[in-house]
């Protein structure tokens, strides 16, 4: 991939066999330009209750915040997320990790978010704006069928009220 001005330097190309199956990579300047464009887009038109930007000077490491959606157990909470872009972004998905503890069946104990679009369903046409909106969406509607914490998923499906109480308690304890 090439973005204006991106020469050949930086990224490494790799082949998994002698004939085909080339793994696409971008030069650092190319992926950097794409990330910069996303940053401009995010500043011009931020998604509701979300914000994101680079952590210091490193363009490949961002900090994002999501404000808990009203009428959910996460309401009023401020959740911080760590976003790490791979060198071959956007052909590989970013890594999204909750830095604020959250009681959610799709977020593992280390804070790693488990979503289709951050794994097999990733597409280079997706942006951080869309990723943040998707994270916000699973905070409103968790997906117990693709859970990384089965206990929470089981409680969510079996005793929704209790699940919401615990989630709200965690929000008060860790996100306020």
């Amino acid at each position: 991939m090439m973005i204006s001005g991106g020469g050949g330097g930086g990224g490494k190309s790799s082949w998994s066999s002698s004939t085909s199956s080339w793994v696409p990579t971008t030069s650092v300047s190319a992926s950097g330009k794409r990330i910069q464009r996303e940053m401009v887009e995010l500043n011009n038109d931020p998604p509701p209750d979300c914000s994101a930007g680079p952590k210091g000077d490193n363009l490949y490491h961002w900090i994002a915040t999501i404000i808990g959606t009203p009428e959910t157990p996460y309401q009023g909470g401020i959740f911080f997320l760590d976003i790490k872009f791979p060198i071959d972004y956007p052909f590989k998905p970013p890594e999204v990790v909750f830095k604020t503890r959250i009681y959610h069946c799709n977020v593992d104990p280390d804070g790693r978010v488990s979503m289709g679009i951050l794994k097999d369903d990733w597409s280079p046409a997706l942006t951080i704006t869309k990723v943040l909106l998707e994270v916000r969406s699973i905070m409103t509607n968790p997906d117990p069928y693709n859970a990384v914490v089965p206990g929470i998923a089981h409680l969510y499906s079996g005793d929704r009220a209790k699940h919401d109480d615990i989630a709200a308690e965690w929000t008060v304890r860790f996100a306020k």
Binding site: M1, M2, I3, S4, G5, G6, G7, G8, G9, S27, A30
Partner: peptide, 10 residues
């Protein structure tokens, strides 16, 4: 021109 040079490099 910038993009052309970049694509050639890639």
């Amino acid at each position: 021109k910038e993009r052309l040079a970049g694509e050639r490099g890639d």
